[in-house]
Design a protein around this nucleic acid. Structure first.
Lengths: 214, 214
DNA sequence: CAAAATACTAAACACTTGTTCAATGCAGGG
DNA sequence: CCCTGCATTGAACAAGTGTTTAGTATTTTG
């Protein structure tokens, strides 16, 4: 069914899908026309429909392809060597960090992830559900290993940590103009992680009637 | 014949603007047609253009109106009685909390804020810039009052706290299905704030070689 | 009250949209 | 070789888009 015989680059089908991914990420599904996608891919509009049956079929294919690529990121965080990494204190567990390591600077995937999560279509919901499950698993393991503090509401804690992490990708442009560094570059991410880690390990505010952490 | 049940009787211009706000928030600017807006507002398509000159003019008007309403939320957090509130420990400073207090449950403004921030149009950028400035001001004051811990990168800390707060609104639906409570309801927010406050005051992870906070 | 201005509508217009279709080029296999 | 099956195109189509226009109510105003 997945008709392409080779998985290598640059069949017309893949070219169209990549062009659509980039354009969808930049401007949203509705704002991009089939003719624009065809021009960007260097083919005729008819060929787009020939390969994907409809514009919505193309969207579904792009969604699936993007979700696959994005899941590759997260698989690393919830991988089987997790326990070992936890023991050595190497488990950083940040989606943004994985993003910077895996994807080239100009990748359209951060922006597409934004669209996937914004438009509440099933692909984005499924993606989030998988990532949330992974986050909960990692946190449970961390608590058991003594690296993370226990909480009586692990669902909220996992959601909070995941969501705060995703916010870096969702609000990437705004963060960039606010702090002067793109948090999805090695430099920007290092600066970001530094202060965020401080909050996550020691807090940022004083509990009522107490001193704030140094 | 106003099809929208409303608290106050409105001029047609306001009715159209509100209908557009709701539809834009739900489905995005590009996916909504002038005819749909007109039908939702109970007027003819021509009248929409008569009042707002073009669909994009309507979008600008809706953006301005939404930004004004949304700023009202944030003004409360950065108000002039901030110092006084800080002294009494009443400054909670969460955008989500302000949202729940100010807007009715079915308000389209959270969803519209999402669109404002994620489609990087100038209105959303300006909104974020204003909110970021307020956040930095509040944090500076908190540090000076001894409520917040000092940091050598206040720009990142302010951005992180603001962005993590906004994430609750941006990923509201996903959070709701993940934890089983809508964080923009009083019940859900209370549950959310409880654990998040724990992280912000004591951290969640162990510093290298140390014990995690209890 | 008459006149001017505005609120509003119905119909049409020009254009773009996604999609279809017949025709062409081109591979490989019998 | 012809033939069958794809990939690919250019032109066309029906539907839907934002917008315009001409005309009618309705309100405001001098």
């Amino acid at each position: 069914m997945s008709s392409v015989p080779d998985e290598r680059d640059l069949t017309a089908r893949a070219t169209i899908r990549n062009a659509a991914l980039r354009l969808f990420a930049e401007r949203g599904h509705e704002a991009v026309t089939v003719r624009e996608i065809a021009t960007a891919a260097g083919v005729s509009p008819g060929l787009v429909l020939h390969h994907f049956a409809s514009k919505d079929g193309l969207r579904v294919a792009v969604d699936a392809h993007a979700a696959e690529s994005l899941d590759a990121i997260f698989a690393e965080l919830g991988g089987q060597d997790l326990t070992e990494m936890l023991a050595r204190g190497e488990a950083t567990g940040s989606v943004a960090e994985a993003f910077v390591q895996v994807f080239p600077p100009g990748s359209p995937l951060p922006a597409y992830l934004r669209r996937l999560l914004l438009t509440n279509d099933p692909a984005g919901a499924a993606l989030f559900a998988r990532w949330y499950a992974t986050t909960r698993g990692v946190l449970d393991a961390m608590v058991e290993s003594g690296i993370a503090a226990p909480t009586d509401d692990p669902a909220v804690r996992a959601a909070f940590l995941l969501v705060s992490d995703l916010a870096v990708i969702l609000l990437r442009e705004q963060i960039t103009t606010a702090i002067g560094n793109d948090p999805l570059t090695p430099t920007g991410l290092a600066r970001w992680t530094r202060d965020v880690t401080a909050v996550y390990t020691g807090g940022a505010f004083a509990a009522p009637g107490k001193e704030p952490p140094s």
